[in-house]
Design a protein around this nucleic acid. Structure first.
Lengths: 141, 141
DNA sequence: GTTCCTGCAAAAGCTTTGCAGAAGA
DNA sequence: TCTTCTGCAAAGCTTTTGCAGGAAC
């Protein structure tokens, strides 16, 4: 079982939020889809298995999880929101050729600057864009 | 005159893009609006002065400027795109209470990690969210 | 005359909202 | 029974597209 799965389901129980079939499937999707899926990607992923699943339910579930801080919202793209099951500090790299989003380790918690003294920082995001290794290699072929 | 204004107009000339009245006004708006305006904010700002200005023109102009790398696109919010006349490396802080977006200095160019070796990094963004100093002080009243 | 620029209207895409029926406690 | 959950349909917003008239070169 994915390490985050147990943690998230425990938190849901603690907040008296039902572990419905839909919610558990969406959570699974977040755990095993490393692409930081959009609502539409989750929908497509689960549609075969649950043909009656609606996007509204996906939106509802993601909002619930985000409010509890159990998933992270990624705004690396202009037009749509992505969701990340990993909430620990890390950066994101988006390949502008293939569209993939990669994680990379970076400790943002230690960052400080005088300009933000007196500010309460609650969320830190580092987003890079460019071309990933694989796409660069393919280009040179 | 704002330091970026001359630079951007020169670049537009160089690329044989006409310095039309609309474009110059939108550029002015970006230079003197420190809020990192959205399309709608630019529209509202200029509407009194130019009642016939359309949002399509604002979109067109911003796309042109962004393609030439003369402005930066900010995706700190889920739903709408903001634009920044300052293209040098810096971070953004969004206050979740008043909605203001602050700049802060940070040199992202020097950041490196083994995980991204072999990747071509073209754009670096650091976004913080939280509560700004003023809103924190007001809260305690 | 030819290219570029502008603005209206329509369309497209993502997300939210209202509501009613279903499921669970 | 009462609350929560789900899904459809509609609405709301931002952004894009097609096109035609106008401006600039």
């Amino acid at each position: 079982m994915h390490p985050r799965y147990a943690l998230v389901t425990n938190q849901l129980k603690k907040h008296q939020i039902r572990l419905s079939d839909r919610r558990l499937k969406i959570l699974e999707c977040l755990c095993y889809n490393l692409e930081h899926p959009t609502v539409d990607q989750i929908y497509v992923n689960l549609h075969k298995e649950i043909p009656t699943l609606s996007k509204t339910t996906i939106y509802n579930t993601l909002h619930t999880l985000a409010e509890l801080g159990l998933i992270r919202i990624i705004n690396i793209e202009d037009n749509k929101t992505r969701y990340d099951i990993i909430t620990e500090s890390h950066g994101h790299f988006k390949c502008q050729t293939c569209g993939s989003i990669f994680n990379f380790e970076v400790d943002l918690k230690s960052f400080a600057t005088d300009e933000l003294s007196g500010f309460k920082i609650m969320e830190r995001n580092l987003y890079f864009k460019g071309i990933c290794q694989e796409c660069l290699l393919n280009k040179n072929d």
